[in-house]
Computed example of a mutant assay.
Amino acid sequence: MSIPGIGYNTAITILAEIGGIDKFVTPKQLVAFFGVDPAVNESGNFKGDKVKISKRGTRFGRRALYAAALASIRMKRNGEATNHVLLKYYKENLKGKKAKVALVAVMHKLIKYLFAVLRNQEEYQVRDPKLHQKMFLENKTIIAA
């Protein structure tokens, strides 16, 4: 519930659908579990260019993620964004994609956030991606030294 846009009921639904995070080694597996990954459309030499989400995962979890993604990009009454990082990401995606495709991209990013929060057992901290990248590179050089 530390992620902005995820309330009590949504958090319980997502956690119930996931079960234990120890079943998933990478965030990509969790994305596939929820069915938000792209479906493959190819046969022989044909490679389809109209890619949709696979929807092979849990529909209740996907609906909860959809609601959380909508809540994350929503503006509050005072004009402040619920999650300014995801709202910025959504608006960047809107430049070249349709609204629902951009929303699925936000759902994908939310799943990655959920994976990190559940794996590390730490609360979510809203950080600018550039600051996060800088912190990651500094930490990587300290470990390598």
Results as ranks from 00 to 15, higher is better:
89 Y>V: 00
32 A>C: 12
17 E>Y: 05
82 T>S: 12
112 K>C: 15
138 E>M: 04
33 F>W: 08
143 I>D: 08
105 A>R: 11
135 M>I: 01
77 R>T: 14
64 A>P: 01
22 D>W: 10
102 A>T: 02
22 D>E: 15
43 S>Q: 10
137 L>R: 06
86 L>E: 03
90 Y>L: 01
1 M>E: 14
96 G>V: 09
80 E>L: 06
119 R>S: 11
48 G>H: 01
12 I>W: 05
61 G>Y: 12
10 T>Q: 08
76 K>V: 09
1 M>Q: 14
43 S>P: 07
85 V>C: 00
11 A>P: 01
118 L>C: 09
135 M>W: 04
145 A>Q: 04
101 V>Q: 08
48 G>N: 03
16 A>F: 12
94 L>K: 07
70 L>K: 06
89 Y>C: 01
15 L>E: 14
37 D>C: 07
129 P>M: 01
83 N>E: 12
119 R>E: 10
48 G>K: 00
32 A>D: 12
32 A>S: 14
131 L>W: 00
106 V>W: 06
36 V>Y: 15
38 P>Y: 02
35 G>T: 07
69 A>Y: 07
74 R>I: 01
68 A>G: 07
23 K>N: 15
84 H>L: 08
95 K>Y: 13
96 G>K: 15
127 R>H: 02
66 Y>D: 07
138 E>Y: 06
75 M>K: 11
62 R>Q: 09
41 N>I: 05
111 I>Q: 14
52 K>E: 13
10 T>N: 07
5 G>T: 00
109 K>P: 01
117 V>H: 08
16 A>R: 15
128 D>Y: 00
14 I>D: 06
98 K>Y: 02
18 I>C: 14
61 G>A: 07
108 H>I: 11
72 S>D: 05
11 A>N: 06
52 K>W: 14
47 K>D: 09
86 L>K: 03
126 V>T: 00
108 H>T: 15
33 F>M: 06
99 A>M: 04
17 E>L: 10
65 L>T: 03
104 V>N: 15
98 K>G: 13
107 M>F: 05
64 A>G: 03
123 E>T: 07
89 Y>F: 09
24 F>P: 09
77 R>K: 14
88 K>D: 05
41 N>W: 04
107 M>I: 04
67 A>D: 12
101 V>N: 03
101 V>S: 09
1 M>I: 13
26 T>G: 10
62 R>W: 09
57 G>F: 03
51 V>T: 11
110 L>K: 04
136 F>Y: 10
54 S>M: 07
23 K>T: 08
141 T>Y: 12
60 F>D: 15
143 I>H: 04
142 I>F: 05
145 A>C: 04
46 F>R: 13
